[in-house]
Amino acid sequence: MAEQVALSRTQVCGILREELFQGDAFHQSDTHIFIIMGASGDLAKKKIYPTIWWLFRDGLLPENTFIVGYARSRLTVADIRKQSEPFFKATPEEKLKLEDFFARNSYVAGQYDDAASYQRLNSHMNALHLGSQANRLFYLALPPTVYEAVTKNIHESCMSQIGWNRIIVEKPFGRDLQSSDRLSNHISSLFREDQIYRIDHYLGKEMVQNLMVLRFANRIFGPIWNRDNIACVILTFKEPFGTEGRGGYFDEFGIIRDVMQNHLLQMLCLVAMEKPASTNSDDVRDEKVKVLKCISEVQANNVVLGQYVGNPDGEGEATKGYLDDPTVPRGSTTATFAAVVLYVENERWDGVPFILRCGKALNERKAEVRLQFHDVAGDIFHQQCKRNELVIRVQPNEAVYTKMMTKKPGMFFNPEESELDLTYGNRYKNVKLPDAYERLILDVFCGSQMHFVRSDELREAWRIFTPLLHQIELEKPKPIPYIYGSRGPTEADELMKRVGFQYEGTYKWVNP
């Protein structure tokens, strides 16, 4: 592979701008107003304001973009700056750019259920340069409990009458099928589907988006991507930290609602779906819905739930269990780990287990898709061969690698495990991989909904998990304890083995 010439960040961002501006969906010269509902909250200060700053800094926003914060707290732009700027990672050389960014910011205080507050917000936006005809993007960085009041008031008082209007809704989209349907029906009564952007930030990850290209742009994968060759698929999300004093919020939802029903299920769809007619948003989402419709409700015998306990040999936070978090209700049975087996009941995947695993306070930070292939028929190497695996590593250190057998150097035919490896950090030294939120917010500006969740996708996802969630809430089974920093409950490994996964433990990928 030829040595790549190092590029400056300015040059890299210039390439990104060229890609972005050559499309006809990006209205570079139009006025846009980006409204952050819930501007005083954690999500706004840690993710949304920093993301908008990065896009502005790199010249990736339309030229005439204004940012308006809205929340109940009586704040000023200076207050917003004070709480969000520490997350910007701005350099001293960017000081003038930073001043320009905050000059485009404003803030309006108001209630979430008060019509007069929204009329005041609308008047404020109209007073901005060309504000009355601007395109408006409303980001709901809010708890779902206020979605209905907020969307109703936005629709009645704050819509642009000339430009387009788009609304970005953060997960969780309800707690179960019934609450999700209620919320979807409410929002759909106010906005068209092409105006609604239900954001799952995992769909903005580079390697998640790469799944489609790997599958449908490489001839070698087509013939082997089926039940005849693939023994099982494992989708993993692991965090090495616990709730760390923020367990009160987590306890309301648990690990299945927080990660599995959305992030992991979306990745499953991209692995299992048929080739779409095109890369058009609805063509892709149509195929994802077909996959979900082929999955039956989760069966309790295919589920393992766990909850982390303190590690007596650990240090600091590792010595504390979930129930030691003062914000967690006493005696909570909320799971911090889950392993679930699903089956896609169609011709391509009949009988292939899709194993979804996620948890907190585990032994490493990792998100990946792992396809394990069947054993080689007619073994001539005296059971020395391990199964081939194709691994798409989402985070950290984005990579695609194939675990395969090669001859060990020497005189004899002794096979050993090795890999074919594409590590993004080595291959793409001159490429700026956008943060997931950067990519998705740019998608909203461009009107691309491919990486957002459609209402029928959402409904099918909740259909699969709601009976299990209701059973857990009714019966309150005690989750299996696992030690902070471990791989999780051993019962999860036993479940995976029972459905056909072979864990060798003899080879570990190392970032080159």
Rank of each mutant, 00 (worst) to 15 (best):
R9N: 15
E239T: 04
H32P: 07
K205C: 02
I196Y: 01
V12M: 15
I255L: 07
I168H: 04
Y118T: 07
C158E: 02
I36T: 03
L43Q: 04
G163C: 09
N210E: 05
I48Q: 00
K238Y: 00
S189G: 15
F191N: 01
I167K: 00
L203C: 04
E252Y: 09
E252D: 10
I36W: 03
Y147K: 04
I154R: 01
E170W: 04
V208C: 15
L61N: 02
S123L: 15
R219W: 09
D30Y: 14
T151E: 00
G131R: 11
L96N: 14
F21R: 15
F221R: 01
Q28W: 12
K171H: 05
G23T: 15
D30S: 13
Q195T: 07
P62C: 07
F34C: 10
Q11I: 13
R104I: 11
L211A: 01
L75A: 13
L128R: 10
G242M: 03
F34E: 03
L96I: 14
L7T: 09
E206G: 07
Y70L: 11
C232G: 14
R136Y: 14
W164K: 07
L211V: 13
F101A: 02
I256S: 02
V233H: 01
R74P: 13
Q195S: 11
R166V: 01
K46V: 02
Q209D: 05
V108L: 08
R215I: 02
R104G: 05
L75T: 10
E239D: 06
K82L: 13
F237Q: 08
R192A: 12
R136K: 10
A127T: 11
S123N: 14
L140T: 07
I36K: 04
R74D: 14
I234D: 06
R182K: 13
A141R: 02
L142R: 03
A141I: 03
A25L: 08
S8C: 06
G59P: 01
H129M: 15
A141F: 00
K171G: 02
F253M: 05
I199E: 02
G38R: 04
I187V: 08
S179Q: 07
I33P: 01
G222K: 11
S160M: 07
Q11H: 12
N64W: 06
S106E: 09
D181T: 12
I67R: 01
S73K: 10
A103F: 10
T76Y: 07
Y118W: 14
E156K: 14
S40K: 04
R192M: 12
V108M: 13
R215Y: 03
K205L: 02
I67Y: 08
D200W: 03
R17A: 15
T76R: 13
Y249S: 04
N64L: 06
K238L: 01
H124R: 12
I162H: 12
E252R: 11
W54S: 07
P143V: 11
S179W: 02
S179T: 14
A149S: 15
F34K: 01
S117A: 15
V233L: 05
F250I: 03
Q209M: 05
R57Q: 05
G69A: 10
R120D: 15
R9K: 11
V233P: 05
R72Y: 02
R166G: 05
D100E: 06
I67C: 08
P86K: 10
R166F: 01
S40W: 04
Y249N: 00
P144I: 03
I162R: 15
N105Q: 11
S40M: 03
V213G: 05
A116Y: 13
A127V: 14
G163N: 06
A231N: 10
D228H: 11
M207K: 08
S29E: 14
A134S: 15
P144F: 02
S106V: 13
W225E: 00
S123M: 13
I256Q: 05
H201W: 01
K171L: 03
R120I: 14
P172V: 00
I196L: 11
T31C: 13
A39M: 06
I168G: 06
I154C: 10
V68I: 14
E170A: 04
G242D: 05
F216M: 02
V150L: 09
I196S: 04
V208F: 04
M207G: 06
A149N: 13
E63H: 15
V68E: 06
R81V: 10
S29G: 09
A39K: 01
R17S: 13
N185I: 10
L98D: 00
D251C: 03
I33T: 11
Q178P: 13
G38T: 04
M159Y: 11
S29L: 11
P240T: 13
R175S: 12
F237G: 06
I35Y: 00
Q161K: 15
L20M: 15
A78T: 08
L137Q: 07
L214P: 02
K82T: 13
